[in-house]
Design a protein around this nucleic acid. Structure first.
Length: 850
RNA sequence: GGGCGGUUAGCUCAGUUGGCUAGAGCGCCUCGUUUACACCGAGGAAGUCGGGGGUUCGAGUCCCUUACCGCCCACCA
């Protein structure tokens, strides 16, 4: 096959992906140690972003490297229905048509969104294929697949039976625009400029006021107490008295509770149980009534005094303030900065509202998770993420799993129409009403939080509990995700995995940082700095994007996207391509274990051996960037710049073929497309039809002495090039004793250092070479030699500096005694060789003096 | 308030348990078209590793302290 001058990814990538799929390259092999991963399921509703591409790059490299090693690799793709997210996207579409979710029933909306998602699902899958994802597509899991839904029901039932699930009227984080509650972790807090208003509450039976400070004066309509610290002497005589609530005239008690900070505000705090989590807890402790002031639309409820009813929160606040002022209750106003929770989608202020919801008691689940983490049952990269996770788990509150949206898995719970406290579990969720024991039950209209189902991913994807898949591949080998879902996803997979299967869900966790925009800011549509990975693939190729993102990145740290790295990676692919182009003519047939003959042969085999071993070390600890750098420099520097050049004078191409074949294997995880494209064009040269299925092999034997000799000649060549370039030598004649150098070295020097002649005689004007053990010199003119003087002087002073450094160290007795013996020996050797070259250099200097 | 990360060449970043002359890519300068590649080749310049102190024979690496940048969590009447 004729290869074009530059590698054109577009010409090959989709064909190669088809080739892999048709040959079922990504199915787990029967033999080999199990290695398993699930890909964090992207939302089924849209396009992949750069973060997906990065996650995929990491995992795909790990998967392909495992296959290369001979592991049996299970790599499972998936898609998430992303309940709330997707419904928001769909509502935006409806909005464009002038409609809203209120125009449809729950069932209608669900089926519309289902059709919409189905139409978009292929899009995401095709993009993943473009990125080279080596998934076993036959194992694909969608989070609304029957097995996921069944598992959610089973788990809900089990938790219900274990009394881990409870239904309760609790404060939930409610977005009044979207009309749904959120988990604590979904609320976004932001610092905001506000005010602290001081309000007088007249104490009954005493001629005084108790002053409370508040940022939300409208909520005083729902106050059911005033609290002070029990040890606060200022207020001790008022405890158990009552106050008359301004504007409502209601009488509420003054209570004592430890949670009140005497130093904040006035040390007295109004208690509004229906709209503040602390107040809610205090009210529970003191059995106080809870009065809702704000409804689920964000307006003042009908239980409130008539003049405020139906007003939105802000209008109500202003009216309350005016009334307080007019009636003399407002004592003062201060500016105050505090943090306010917002809906992470629409930025509406989150209202803590009282609502009946399903909650999971997290304490026992978190406790088990902390135990396995403390026992180091799961290895984290970077390790610091484990500590962060433990801290998070230790302060975890109960999890609200009810969502008031249509798009999701219906909660399989039914309420007795006659008795609101009678709830039963039943999976007949397609019916709104069911009959059991002659009683009628009505389905809970809510759906599960998406994370409730996605947290079962590791064991659902492997078909827990009885499948062979589960037995072989669970716990998963590696879980890689971005830092942003360490808490919402990783933590819950650990807790639920332990709860349901009794085992950890994965053995290792790799947390990668975000791919930021070039300037280090977060990528976001509103800033217009988003990089679309598919555009990059179209321009530079899939391999280039992968390697460009991986290069120089460490786990857990956010870094900007660097287009220069992608471009460099594209060039690298082209370099490899051209090595193959060059090799094509040189190699004819496949020899499994060729014999290295020349110095260069032995040297490159030595380098290849070193590469394979070091790469294994890097990959064992998921050092993706380090591995990449080693491959890059081996292929570009050692193979292309030295071996290919040296081998141009060789007729036997068997070692070139061997090294190329092994290099393709080792690079394949990082650059699957270009390596496979080359592999396919080199058909007669290797044992395996498809590179994606090739296995790593032990590198053939080589002669270390010959390899070392090549290294010396290489150093000599570099020195000749250096002097020739800086001194601008046009004609290069090298003087060296025949005993110093053999025929093979001579050829290499002539060819690679562009030396015209190698002679066994002295010239009047010469520059002595000092970097190797070979005594040699370059013939130069008097003029050049004079110009060399300053170079020579700086070389000498540099060598002297090094020399004195080495001597200083060796004079230090403590160094000799305490430093490792090997190091001291190395220092002595260095000193010997620096002395030798210094001697030569100083000898040169005498030429100028004479 | 608590926790975490970053600060190394003009730019973007590596630097694994302390070890010798601190690296890479890009950019920059000089030269170059020699039977793969200009998405190229050869050579070169460029860093007192944020500041200060300490431990050590030896510190970019460990400890203390300080400055700046960024992230996360909790509370906020």
């Amino acid at each position: 096959m004729e290869l074009s001058k530059t590698y054109n990814p577009k010409e090959y990538e989709s064909k190669i992906y088809d080739l892999w799929e048709q040959n079922k390259v990504f199915e787990p092999s029967k033999e080999g140690r199990p290695f398993s991963m699930v890909f964090p399921p992207p939302n089924a509703n849209g396009n992949l972003h750069i973060g997906h591409a990065f996650t995929l790059a990491i995992q795909d490299i790990a998967a392909r490297y495992a296959r290369l090693k001979g592991d049996s690799v299970l790599f499972v793709p998936g898609a998430d229905h992303a309940g709330f997210e997707t419904q928001v996207v769909y509502e935006r579409l409806l909005e464009k048509e002038g409609k809203s979710r209120f125009d449809f029933s729950r069932e209608e909306l669900y089926s519309q969104i289902y059709d919409y998602v189905n139409a978009n699902k292929n899009n995401t899958e095709n993009q993943l294929k473009k990125l080279g994802a080596s998934f076993d597509w036959s194992k694909h899991v969608f989070s609304l697949d029957k097995k996921v839904v069944d598992s959610a029901y089973k788990r809900f039932k089990k938790m219900w039976d274990d009394k881990l699930i409870y239904r309760g009227e609790r404060l939930v984080n409610f977005c009044t625009l979207h009309g749904t509650a959120f988990a604590d972790i979904e609320v976004e807090y932001k610092e905001e400029q506000g005010h602290l208003w001081y309000v007088n509450y007249p104490v009954n039976g005493a001629d005084e006021n108790i002053v409370v400070a508040t940022t939300r004066p409208e909520t005083l309509l729902g106050d059911t107490a005033v609290a002070v610290n029990p040890n606060d002497k200022r207020y001790s005589k008022l405890i158990n008295k009552t106050v008359t609530l301004p504007l409502t005239g209601r009488e509420v008690p003054i209570i004592a509770d430890d949670f009140v900070d005497p130093d904040f505000g006035t040390g007295a705090v109004k208690i509004t149980p229906a709209h503040d989590p602390n107040d809610f807890e205090a009210a529970s402790r003191h059995s106080l009534p809870m009065i809702s002031v704000i409804d689920f639309m964000g307006n003042i409820t009908h239980e409130m005094p008539e003049k405020y009813r139906g007003l939105d929160v802000l209008t109500a606040r202003n009216k309350v303030l005016k009334d307080l002022k007019d009636q003399g209750f407002l004592s003062k106003t201060e500016d105050y900065t505090h943090s306010v929770g917002h809906c992470y989608k629409c930025k509406t202020i989150i209202q803590p509202l009282l609502k009946e919801q399903w909650f999971i008691d997290m304490k026992p689940l978190a406790k088990k998770a902390v135990e396995v983490l403390r026992d180091n049952k799961i290895v984290f990269y970077p390790e610091s993420k484990k500590t962060q996770l433990i801290n998070y788990l230790n302060q975890l509150r109960d999890w609200n799993i009810s969502r008031q949206i249509s798009w999701g898995i219906p909660i399989p719970a039914f309420q007795n129409t006659e008795n609101p406290d009678d709830w039963i579990f039943d999976s007949r969720v397609e019916q709104e009403l069911i009959e059991t024991d002659n009683k009628t039950y009505k389905r809970d209209p809510d759906v599960f939080d998406t994370w409730f189902s996605s947290s079962s991913w590791p064991y659902v994807a492997t078909d827990y509990p009885d499948s062979d898949l589960f037995k072989k591949y669970y716990p998963l080998s590696l879980m890689d995700t971005g830092g942003e879902i360490l808490f919402p996803w990783v933590s819950r997979m650990i807790m639920l995995g332990l709860y349901e299967t009794g085992e950890i869900p994965f053995k290792e966790v790799y947390i990668h940082g975000y791919v930021m925009a070039e300037d280090g800011a977060k990528m976001s549509k509103s800033l217009g700095n988003v990089i679309n990975p598919i555009d990059v693939v179209d321009e530079y190729g899939s391999d280039a994007l992968r390697m460009g993102m991986i290069a120089g990145r460490v786990p857990g740290v956010n870094r900007g996207y660097d287009p220069r790295k992608v471009e460099d990676a594209r060039n690298f692919c082209n370099k490899l391509w051209n090595i193959a182009r060059f090799s094509q003519d040189k190699i004819s047939s496949y020899i499994k274990n060729p014999k290295p003959k020349t110095m260069a042969d032995n040297w490159i085999i030595g380098k290849l051996d070193e590469l394979e071993k070091n790469l294994a070390k890097d990959m064992d600890r998921y050092g993706f960037a380090e591995g990449h750098e080693k491959l890059y420099h081996f292929i570009w520097d050692d193979l292309a710049d030295w071996y290919v050049e040296a081998s141009k004078s060789q007729s036997d191409g068997s070692i070139l073929a061997y090294v190329l074949v092994q290099s393709l294997k080792l690079l394949h995880p990082y650059a699957p497309f270009v390596t496979e494209a080359i592999w396919q064009s080199l058909k007669p040269v290797h044992e395996s039809e498809i590179l994606g299925r090739a296995k790593i092999s032990t590198i053939i034997e080589f002669d270390r002495a010959k390899s070392k000799k090549f290294e010396t000649v290489k150093d000599l060549i570099v020195e000749i090039r250096n002097i020739s370039n800086t001194m601008k030598l046009t004609k290069r004649r090298l003087v060296v004793k025949p005993s110093q150098i053999d025929k093979e070295s001579e050829e290499l020097i002539k060819k690679l250092a562009r030396v015209g002649e190698i002679l066994d005689k002295s010239f009047e004007e010469e520059i002595q070479l000092t970097n190797t053990d070979i005594i040699a010199s370059l013939e130069v003119s008097r003029e050049v030699l004079n110009g060399y003087l300053s170079d020579l002087k700086s070389k000498i002073s540099e060598s002297k500096k090094i020399k004195s450094g080495l001597e200083g160290r060796l004079k230090n007795r403590a160094y000799i005694e305490k430093a490792p013996e090997k190091l001291v020996k190395e220092t002595r050797d260095s000193l010997v060789s620096i002395n030798k070259s210094l001697e030569l250099l100083e000898g040169e200097l005498t030429k100028f003096k004479s």
